[in-house]
Design a protein around this nucleic acid. Structure first.
Ligand SMILES: NC(=O)c1ccc[n+]([C@@H]2O[C@H](COP(=O)([O-])OP(=O)(O)OC[C@H]3O[C@@H](n4cnc5c(N)ncnc54)[C@H](O)[C@@H]3O)[C@@H](O)[C@H]2O)c1
Ligand SMILES: NC(=O)c1ccc[n+]([C@@H]2O[C@H](COP(=O)([O-])OP(=O)(O)OC[C@H]3O[C@@H](n4cnc5c(N)ncnc54)[C@H](O)[C@@H]3O)[C@@H](O)[C@H]2O)c1
Lengths: 220, 220
DNA sequence: TAGTGATTGTGTTCACATTCACAAGCTACA
DNA sequence: TGTAGCTTGTGAATGTGAACACAATCACTA
C-alpha cells in the first residue's frame, strides 16, 4: 500500500507546497538529486518528516542517492492538483487589492489573476498589474466566464459578507478573505481568513513566554 | 490545580485570541454573560473546546449561567500578555507597508505602530497613517529608543535577510515577514512568514478533494 | 560479484489535541 | 427550603501527527 492510495494529512499538504520554492532553487543551482537531509535543513524540519511526507505521494526516491529534483517537483504539483495555473479574481482594489495585483511573484508560482472588481466608479476602468478593474455589478457573470477557481476578498469589512455570498452563489468554492470576521458560507465553499492581528499576538505571546527561559547565561 | 498553573496548548492560544473579537461584539450588544454554546456557535467550534480553552486560564464561568463577558475579555488579554498595547515598527513602506500603516483597525485591537522605515529617499519624510517614515539607516537605534516589541518586514525579498538580521541584533525578538523565504534567525527571535501562496494552494487543494463528494444530489 | 557506505521507506512509539460524557454547582421559582 | 433546569469544569477515550530506529535497497568500487 504505497502510492497515494490513502489520505494525506493536512500538515503534509502544507509542507509539500512549502518544499516547492526551495526545490526550485536547488534545481536552478544545477543539482539533479536532493536528499531528505539536505531539504530538511533548508526548511528547518526533521528529515524523517520530509521522507514521510513524500511517502504519501508515492515512492519517489532512490535509496542511497536521494530524490530526483525534477521528478519531485512534478510529483508534488500533481499531488496538490497544481498542474495548471490557478485562476484568481480580486474583489476590492484598495490598498491590499492593489498590492496583490501589482505583486509579480504570484505569476511565477502558478497563480494567475484573471480579473479584478471594485464598486467605486473611480477604480473601474483603471489598469492595475495585468488586469483592468471591472464593475463589481458584473461579478457573478464574469467569475463564471473567466472560470475563476479562487476569489480574494479585499473589501471593507461591512461589505465582506455580501461579497462572499455572491462569490459563493457564482459557484466559486475557494475564498481567501482579508477581513477577519467569520463569513457564513455553504458547506461546499472553503474560506480562509488572513488574520495578521492573530499572527502578531501569537508572536508576542511566545516571545514573552520564553523570556523566563534565559536563565544562567552568565559567561561560562 | 486550576488557575493557569500549567502549560497552555498552542492551539488554545490562537483560539483565545480569536474569541476576543466576537466577545467585543457581544459586549457592545449589551450582554453581560455568554455561554460556551453561544460563543462556540459564533466561532464555529465545539462548545467543549471553548470550555477547555477557558479552563487553562482559570475557572471563569458560573455554572448554570455562563461567563461574564467583561471579565472574560480581561482574563484572555491577561493570559495572552496583551494588557498593554503592542509596540510595532514597519520596515519597507511599499504597497504592503503602506496598507498596514493606513489600516485603522490595528489601533483598536491593541496594536500600536510607532515607527516606519524605508531606504528610499523619496519615502523618507512622508507621513503615512500615524507615523512619519524614517531612514532605514537609523533602524537599530530607533527600534530601541521606541521600545519596539515586534517588527513587520515588508521589503523586497532580496533585502529581507539583511533587514531581519539587523532587527534581531537590535534586540527585537518578534518578526512578521511578508517574504516567504526562510530567514535565518537566532533562537531567541520568533519569525512568522505570511505566505498567501500557501493559503491559496491549500484552499484549491481542499476544494478539488471534496469535488468527488458531491454524489447523489439529484433532486429528492 | 561481493563488499561498503549512504539514503530511503516505514512500523512503532510518543506527544499532543479534540471529543465525549457526566458530576458538580449555580439560578430561579414555588 | 427543595426541586427543576442549565451550564460549567474535567477525567477518560479517541484521533492525529511527529519522532525515532532500523531493515531494505541502491550506487560504486575493486
Ligand atoms: N490594509 C491592511 O493592512 C489590512 C490589514 C488587515 C485586514 N485588512 C482588511 O482588508 C480589507 C481591505 O483592506 P484595504 O486596506 O485594502 O481597504 P481599502 O479601503 O483601501 O479598499 C477597499 C476597496 O474595496 C472597494 N469596495 C467597497 N465595497 C465594495 C464592494 N461591495 N464590491 C467591490 N469593491 C468594493 C472600495 O472601493 C475600495 O477600493 C478590509 O476589510 C480590511 O479590514 C486590511
Ligand atoms: N504585494 C503583495 O501582494 C505581496 C504578496 C506576498 C508577498 N509580498 C512580499 O512582501 C514584500 C513587500 O511587498 P511590496 O509589494 O510592499 O513591495 P514594494 O516593492 O512595493 O515595497 C518595498 C519597499 O521596501 C523599501 N526598501 C527596499 N529595501 C529596503 C531596505 N533595505 N530597508 C528598508 N526599506 C527598503 C522600498 O523602498 C519599497 O518602498 C516583498 O518581499 C514581497 O515579495 C508581497
Amino acid at each position: 500500500m504505497s502510492v497515494g492510495s490513502g489520505h494525506i494529512p493536512n500538515e503534509t499538504i502544507d509542507r509539500l507546497f512549502s518544499y516547492l520554492r526551495p526545490l526550485m532553487c536547488v534545481l536552478n543551482r544545477g543539482s539533479v538529486t536532493v536528499s531528505s537531509r539536505e531539504l530538511a535543513e533548508i526548511c528547518t524540519v526533521n528529515p524523517s518528516v520530509v521522507r514521510k511526507d513524500f511517502s504519501y505521494i508515492g515512492s519517489l526516491g532512490t535509496r542511497g542517492v536521494g530524490y530526483n529534483v525534477r521528478e519531485l517537483i512534478e510529483s508534488i504539483r500533481r499531488a496538490l492538483k497544481f498542474d495548471n495555473d490557478i485562476r484568481i479574481a480580486v474583489v476590492g482594489v484598495g490598498n491590499i487589492g492593489r498590492a496583490l495585483l501589482e505583486h509579480p511573484r504570484f505569476g511565477f508560482e502558478g497563480f494567475k489573476i484573471v480579473a479584478a472588481f471594485d464598486s467605486s466608479p473611480e477604480k473601474v476602468g483603471q489598469t492595475v498589474g495585468q488586469v483592468t478593474v471591472e464593475d463589481a455589478a458584473d461579478l457573478e457573470k464574469r467569475l463564471q466566464s473567466e472560470a475563476v477557481q479562487l476569489v480574494i476578498v479585499a473589501v471593507p469589512e461591512i461589505c465582506a459578507p455580501d461579497v462572499a455570498r455572491r462569490v459563493g452563489d457564482a459557484g466559486v468554492n475557494s475564498v481567501l478573505s482579508f477581513t477577519p470576521c467569520g463569513l457564513a458560507m455553504p458547506d461546499n465553499v472553503n474560506v480562509t481568513s488572513v488574520d495578521l492581528s492573530l499572527e502578531m499576538a501569537r508572536l508576542v505571546y511566545h516571545s514573552c513566554s520564553q523570556e523566563g527561559l534565559r536563565i544562567g547565561d552568565g559567561a561560562a
